[in-house]
Design a protein around this nucleic acid. Structure first.
Lengths: 125, 125
DNA sequence: CCTTGACCTAGAGCAGCTCCAACCCCCTAT
DNA sequence: ATAGGGGGTTGGAGCTGCTCTAGGTCAAGG
């Protein structure tokens, strides 16, 4: 499939895919006779994983490291697990932070709603 | 209190506070006779809210809009509620996305662990 | 006295996209 | 056959939101 379809399926934009390719994050990019990129199912799986790593906040440099490990072969599986588990741990922290912020936000909204209510009350008097 | 303390308490860095000040996001910044910024408790509350909005992914432009509303006075409370509730809704979407990515990540880790196991198995034979 | 540390400023640098101009190729409709 | 639309290509500029650096002031401590 072409880059547009691969983009839709993976959750990355075509621009991002090209950008990642420059950074060496794409395992395989073949071109047709017109010079257009095309991708197989398995390539899209990889793009989806990149989208996942990006979406969970992994820095590009680390995603690069991960890509290198994948390129080096099966003996790097323990290292890949380490990297992903570290990432998952940091993610858990970020999620806790996000939970706290979300609570803060909800409290603020609730507070403003109470202000609004008392404003209406005043206006009615 | 000074900027360093305010930073620690609010969750923003001193650099970020100064940057936000330039962008007009700080309600009040007073200076002492040396030209150093100092903040009251209530200022730190505002900084904490900015940290919350940032942490939940609100774009600066929107945070700017929000700040303007706050500066305009109590009659903007309904608009503030609108803005924050829209933000909360988008946040819910982002959270759903994050959940999906986290699941993807966990599956990948589980997959690699199964690969690792079968590698050991092979080695033992 | 001099080092340390916290503050100040303006401005450069960075991450990670995102958009733009200028071009190619193919298809369809007039 | 040509005009327009929709896809692709490139290099590079622009954007967001910090983050860091250089070069400076001041106050306290060894």
């Amino acid at each position: 499939m072409n880059i547009g379809e691969a983009a839709k399926m993976s959750g990355l934009s075509p621009d991002t895919i090209r950008f990642y390719e420059k950074r060496g994050l794409i395992l395989s990019t073949k071109r047709d006779e017109k010079g257009h990129r095309y991708y197989a199912e398995s390539d899209v799986g990889w793009l989806g994983l990149l989208a996942c790593l990006r979406g969970t906040g992994m820095p590009l440099a680390e995603t690069e490291t991960f890509t290198h490990l994948v390129n080096e072969g099966e003996h790097t599986v323990p290292d890949r697990i380490d990297l992903l588990e570290n990432h998952r741990e940091r993610l858990a922290e970020k999620r806790a932070e996000l939970d706290a912020y979300e609570k803060h936000l909800d409290e603020k909204i609730a507070y403003y709603n109470s202000v609004l209510k008392s404003q209406k009350h005043e206006a009615a008097q």
